Computed example of a mutant assay.
Amino acid sequence: MVTLDEVLKDLQAESDSLDRLVSALDDKDWSRPTPAKGWTVAHQIAHLHWTDTVATLAAADPAAFVARMSAIEDPLTMVDRAAADTIAPPAELLRRWRDGRQALAEALSATPKDEKLPWFGTAMSPLSSATGRMMETWAHGQDVAETFPDRPDAQEHRRPTDRLRHVANLGFRTIGHSFLSHGERPPAAPFRIELSTVDGQVWTFGPEDAPNRVVGPAEDFCLLVTQRRHPADLRLQATGDEARRWTTLAQAFAGPPGQKREPRQ
């Protein structure tokens, strides 16, 4: 069983890796478009900072979080608008993001482990909140790194690590949510996930005899559940009608369905 301290440590490592990449960019590179439609590098970091800020609010003052979210007029465009509104000059945005990461870690560490924190359409423990931030940081870091295919530091950031297990675990735990967010009933039958890592490990989730199965590389599974790749571009094998359907709906993040990526080939 993973602990909050372990996830926070890995979240810090993932954030530091992305920080090293973006802090080495020229200011003009922050305006480069990323694979996320309409989002530049600055949008990606601004989104991470904004989400860290509201996650901190949810942990430190749940009532204030609920009041802030209730005042939002259009939830479907909230994420894009928040990212655009949070953009600042690179040096200032970096400082804010670093301070926000530290504030979030302190707020989650100070929250009782069994307390449920409000979030977008759900409630989460501090551990789940930290896991969600780990997932988002990795996913948006992928977009930033892919923007600079010729930079060695970008390729180093994209190298898979054991930290992906948090993302994979969240992807498995949100299978039912993926169906619900698309207005469909979650399958009654269980799922089995078997993922291979670059260093020869196999991560498994769910019962061995489950009728729905997804097998393949751990990195590809994480790219699927964060909607960073179209299923057709991934080396995943789905067995069972419900498993195959899930690969078209998968989303490890809360809220409405995201803008899925188009096939690359």
Rank of each mutant, 00 (worst) to 15 (best):
Asn169Lys: 13
Ala139Asn: 09
Arg229Thr: 03
Ala67Asn: 09
Gln155Val: 06
Asp199His: 13
Thr239Val: 15
Gln227Lys: 10
Ile45Phe: 01
Thr137Pro: 00
Asp74Asn: 14
Lys113Ser: 14
Phe179Gly: 05
Asp143Thr: 07
Glu262Pro: 01
Asp27Phe: 00
Asp61Gln: 12
Glu14Phe: 07
Arg235Ser: 14
Asp26Asn: 14
Gln251Trp: 05
Leu249Val: 08
Thr111Ala: 06
Pro211Trp: 01
Thr226Lys: 00
Thr161Cys: 06
Leu76Gln: 12
Ala64Pro: 10
Thr77Gln: 09
Leu108Met: 08
Arg81Tyr: 01
His166Asp: 04
Thr137Trp: 02
Ala232Trp: 07
Gly141Asn: 04
Ala238Pro: 10
Asp52Tyr: 08
Gly183Asn: 08
Leu93Gly: 00
Arg264Cys: 01
Thr86Gly: 02
Glu242Gln: 15
Leu249Tyr: 04
Gln44Cys: 15
Gly176Thr: 08
Val214Glu: 06
Ala46Met: 04
Pro90Glu: 03
Ile45Gln: 08
Val202Trp: 04
Thr226Phe: 03
Gly171Glu: 08
Ala105Val: 09
Thr174Arg: 13
Asp80His: 05
Arg165Lys: 15
Ala139Ile: 03
Gln201Phe: 06
Gln201Trp: 04
Gln142Tyr: 07
Ala218Met: 13
Glu242Trp: 06
Leu4Val: 06
Glu219Ile: 15
Arg96Thr: 09
Phe205His: 11
Ser17Cys: 07
Leu170Tyr: 05
Thr174Ala: 12
Glu106Gly: 02
Arg245Asp: 02
Arg32Glu: 10
Glu92Cys: 01
Glu146Val: 00
Arg133Ala: 04
Gln155Tyr: 05
Asp74Thr: 11
Ala107Gly: 11
Trp246Asn: 04
Asp162Cys: 02
Gly132Gln: 10
Arg98Met: 02
Met69Ser: 08
Ala154Ile: 07
Thr77Leu: 05
Thr197Lys: 10
Phe120Ala: 13
Asp29Phe: 07
Asp153Cys: 07
Ala13Gly: 09
Arg32Thr: 15
Gln259Phe: 02
Pro257Tyr: 01
Glu242His: 12
Asp209Asn: 14
Gly216Trp: 11
Thr161Met: 08
Ala130Asp: 04
Ala252Pro: 01
Ile175Lys: 09
Trp39Leu: 08
Thr40Ala: 00
Val2Leu: 14
Pro207His: 04
Thr111Cys: 11
Ala84Ile: 05
Glu73Arg: 15
Thr247Cys: 13
Thr204Phe: 00
Lys37Ala: 15
Ala84Glu: 14
Ile87Ala: 00
Val2Asn: 13
Lys37Met: 02
Asp241His: 12
